[in-house]
Design a binder for these strands. Structure first.
Length: 592
RNA sequence: GGGGGAUUGGUGUAAUUGGUAGCACGACAGAUUCUGAUUCUGUUAGUUCCAGUUCGAGUCUGGGAUCCCCUACCA
């Protein structure tokens, strides 16, 4: 039996073919593969960007090629150094190892300018001095062709001079643009003499006031790829309509180039390939809306754990491996898919299940008193019992937990009048307290509202460690259905725990009413105080993995995966719930 | 009377390019379990539609439907 070769997605197949044919070099040379992640530094990265980072860097790694990080900083009006820094940090955290220095499109401005001049010289570009509105009108519509600008056929020398004037600050913002001379009647709007350069008299975060003109995306992007020798320029589906333009610009530069040409040799022409974005239910990948959530304070910031920004997911407790698996396994295709939210959650559970150390903690504590504790020794004694740190990893060993007369258990784990399928504690019922003893409920107190204030139990000393007691005289073995987590009241710490729900109540926020904020979930954050955690969680112990980002993550048994928030201190511990455990009881309970 | 892209179980994704429609998640049922977790087993359900070519079509041809993208001096 041989396993079938893992399926290769369409981009891998393209690259396989390119390598076989030697498109980028010697046939068979895989190291020619060069990819890039080209963010604009105008916001924080989200999980959609993470897909691009993982795809591009993963491909380079797979083929032994190179992966670059390049900022597409072509618009000084929108970009900031803060975002450059956060993006670098996020790419690094994701494990995207870029080759060489961080690159900037702005470093290529001089070269781009030269090529623009060349296009003017070839009669392939012209300076248009009409007002913005006029140019827009002349572009036509989806069903009607555009009309040519009166400047379209102006003499080359004139365009050259005016372009020089644009560059040196001789025009106000919007005073003139450089346009490619392509086809005003093209059914593809992008080809109706697109703007290559516009005048922006604003200092740039890296080039200062050197430039008064800045290149548009379509003109700049292919040139950046060309300069860096990118072989496969990956982008999202909405750029499909731009590919003809991407190719046109490179071809325009290469026109009349070649051996002996006064313009020089042909330049590298990388291949643009489009794939579908990562779309997730119950959220949005729109940078604009993410910014809106931050600006209008619907969340606490870009790194709010409810946000699907890389920073938010990290603070939530997501690991890079979980994110990587989620976005790549969602598939590399051209189909505009919407991914189940549970897929993301499951990716985290899968990862953390194998690595996260187990601890016990009680989120909604109710007191449990062992009434016969004093019958078997000092009533104030605390017994130390070993608890397994990670059942998935024997080498993680055990830790001692302290058990005594007074304990905290989860309020949900007790019912005054439990249904038959409820395996937990109720009057007269016996359960196991994990790693400790079996206890039987004998009594309980309630307050005036009927709320349980204290549960009283007896324990069976023969069940020490949580094991079943020996068989009785007739050979019958006692069994319990339920196992509860608990902490010792005398040896626990108080903590704040933050529980998160999805940010939106609809799978496609905004679809219902057209207004995304209408679907905002008002209960996406629940902050619990007075939660009880076993004391050992406070200090790192050797069983904890060396998390590369230093964020300590745990499973609180039976509750879910949690991590320490960045604002947590030893005096005021704060845990974020990353994701719950699957809960088939909740499903069962919801049925009735 | 515009152009571009897409469509395979509920969701997502494969199918050696014309040869048994597979995988994952979900749902359901069961087993194991000191986490109602994990793990394991089983069940469920699919080629957008209509024609055509063919011994044979998810795959090729023609036509229809539906969805996404395109009229920034944003990227």
């Amino acid at each position: 039996m041989t396993d079938p070769a893992p399926a290769r997605h369409f981009i891998q197949q393209i690259i396989d073919a390119d390598i076989a044919s030697g498109k980028w070099g010697t046939p068979g040379d895989r190291t020619v593969v060069t990819t890039r992640f080209p963010p604009e530094p105008n916001g924080y990265l989200h999980i959609g960007h993470a897909k691009s980072v993982c795809l591009n860097s993963g491909l380079a790694k797979e083929f032994g090629g190179r992966f670059y990080l390049r900022f597409d900083d072509t618009n000084p009006a929108k970009e900031e150094q803060e975002f450059v820094d956060s993006i670098c940090a996020d790419v690094e955290w994701l494990g995207g190892e870029w080759h060489g220095p961080v690159r900037f499109a702005s470093d290529y401005f001089p070269q781009m300018y030269e090529w623009a001049v060349e296009l003017i010289q070839k009669g392939l570009a012209y300076v248009d001095e009409q007002p913005h509105d006029k140019i827009r009108e002349q572009r036509g519509s989806l069903t009607e062709p555009g009309t040519p600008s009166p400047y379209r056929d102006r003499p080359i020398e004139e365009s050259l001079a005016q372009f020089e004037k644009m560059k040196s600050g001789g025009f106000p913002d919007g005073g003139a643009v450089l346009r490619a001379k392509i086809d005003m009647a093209s059914p593809n709007m992008n080809l109706r003499d697109p703007v290559m350069y516009r005048v922006i008299n604003k200092p740039h975060h890296r080039t200062g006031s050197t430039w008064h003109i800045y290149p548009m995306y379509d003109w700049a992007h292919g040139l950046e790829d060309s300069i860096e020798g990118i072989t496969h320029s990956l982008c999202t589906l909405e750029f499909e309509n731009h590919r003809p333009l991407y190719d046109w610009f490179i071809n325009a530069i290469n026109q009349d180039r070649g051996p002996g040409s006064k313009f020089g040799e042909k330049i590298h022409h990388s291949q643009q390939i489009e794939f579908s974005r990562y779309n997730l239910e119950y959220t949005t990948m729109s940078k604009r809306f993410l910014k809106l959530l931050v600006d209008e304070k619907h969340v606490e910031g870009w790194d709010d754990p409810r946000m699907i920004t890389v920073a938010g997911l990290r603070r939530r407790g997501y690991t890079r491996e979980a994110i990587r698996n989620a976005v790549i396994e969602a598939g590399i295709t051209k189909y505009n898919a919407l991914t189940d939210f549970t897929k993301l959650e499951n990716a985290l559970r899968d990862d953390l299940n194998t690595r996260a150390p187990r601890r016990m903690g009680v989120l909604d504590p109710v007191k449990l008193v062992i009434t016969n504790w004093g019958d078997h020794g000092d009533p104030s004694r605390l017994e130390e019992l070993p608890a397994i740190n990670n059942p998935e990893d024997e080498s993680a060993g055990t830790r001692p937990v302290k058990f005594g007369r007074e304990l905290w258990i989860e309020r949900d784990d007790f019912m005054i009048d439990p249904p038959k399928k409820f395996f937990r504690l109720g009057p007269g019922r016996e359960v196991r307290l994990r790693y400790a003893y079996w206890v039987t409920c004998t009594d309980f107190d309630t307050d005036a509202d009927g709320r349980v204030t204290e549960i009283r139990c007896t324990y069976d000393p023969q069940t020490r460690g949580g094991d079943a007691p020996p068989p009785d005289a007739d050979g019958n073995v006692r069994k319990v259905k339920g196992t509860l987590h608990w902490v010792s009241a005398a040896d626990c710490i108080d903590a704040t725990v933050r529980l998160f729900d999805r940010l939106f109540t609809e799978p496609r926020p905004g679809k219902r009413t057209g207004e995304i904020l209408d679907d905002l979930n008002p209960d996406s954050l629940k902050t619990l105080t007075g939660c009880k955690l076993e004391r050992s969680i406070l200090k790192p112990t050797p069983d904890e993995p060396a998390w590369p980002d230093g964020i300590r993550r745990f499973q609180l048994e039976r509750l879910g995966y949690f991590c320490f928030d960045k604002a947590s201190t030893p005096d005021n511990p704060i845990l974020n719930r990353s994701v719950t455990l699957k809960d088939s009881w909740a499903k069962e309970a919801a049925k009735s």
